[in-house]
Computed example of a mutant assay.
Amino acid sequence: MYIHDLSKQNSVLNTFISEIRSVSIQKDRMRFRRNIERIGEILGYEMSQVFNYTPSTIATPLGACSISELENDIVLCSILRAGVPLHNGLLNYFDKVENAFISAYRHHKDSTENFEIIVEYLACPNLEGKTLILADPMLATGQSMVATFEALKPYGTPKEIHLVSVIGAQEGVNFVEKHFNASAHLWIATIDETLNDKGYIVPGLGDAGDLAFGEKLQH
């Protein structure tokens, strides 16, 4: 797997990462969502540089202009609910893509910290021969990414696979690297070293879904 860790170079991305981590700034839900969206835009731009392009000629009011245009047939799939702002950021740059949505959540079988990933909802177009972008803002254990991809397999075999995350733990990065083929790409804004005993990224930022949309009742 090709791993693209954007934190290895300084850019304005650092500002957005700082703000979504900050316990004071992240309390502003609208700003939190917008920062995730802007991070998605940056990740989308970086990812676009490895896509395929076709020479084209367009007419301007003053003449003809030669330009290369994106030719990838893209399906953008996000994991609900935390993935919505990230999805919107990517969609801002890939406005002609098809879209897929999937729900995936942690189910604790007992009182321990062990859990399994449950997929309950899936809406997806045909993936055969297309470029699949699978977006989840938090790459903690990596199990959600893998479970989601397994659920997508009946919809066809993509030509290319690109995983997109905002913050990941090294353990999660290692996990997806083992479960996706060598030609897949991971685009990530920053990587933290550890997970706590509940499987959350440390230092991370907390629960991205709750920060974006409000706390949920636990059943």
Rank of each mutant, 00 (worst) to 15 (best):
I58L: 15
L91F: 05
G44R: 03
C77M: 08
N35Q: 10
I25P: 01
V84F: 05
R31G: 01
G63N: 08
R34C: 08
S56H: 15
M30Q: 13
L90P: 01
I36G: 01
R38E: 08
T57D: 03
D28Q: 10
S68W: 05
S24I: 14
L90I: 11
P61T: 12
N88H: 12
F32C: 07
M30W: 07
M30G: 03
D95H: 12
D95T: 13
E41T: 14
C65D: 00
E46A: 14
T54K: 14
N35R: 07
P55G: 13
I58D: 05
N72T: 03
R38P: 01
A100N: 03
L62C: 09
V84E: 02
N92Q: 14
G40Y: 06
V50L: 10
G44A: 15
L91S: 10
T57A: 14
R81L: 01
G40R: 06
L43V: 11
Y53V: 12
T57F: 13
N88G: 06
G63I: 11
R81S: 02
H87N: 07
D28P: 06
T54G: 01
V84H: 03
V84Q: 02
R33V: 04
V23H: 09
V84T: 03
G89I: 10
D95A: 15
H87S: 09
I74C: 07
L91V: 06
F101H: 05
Y45G: 09
R33I: 05
R31Q: 07
R38V: 08
A64S: 12
G83Y: 02
Q26L: 09
I42F: 06
K27N: 13
N92G: 11
G63E: 04
S66I: 12
L62G: 05
A59D: 00
L90K: 05
G40K: 13
T54F: 08
P85W: 01
S66Y: 08
R33N: 05
P85H: 04
T60Y: 04
S68V: 08
G83R: 06
L80R: 04
N52V: 04
R81V: 05
G83E: 02
I74P: 03
N99I: 12
I25R: 08
L70I: 12
E69P: 00
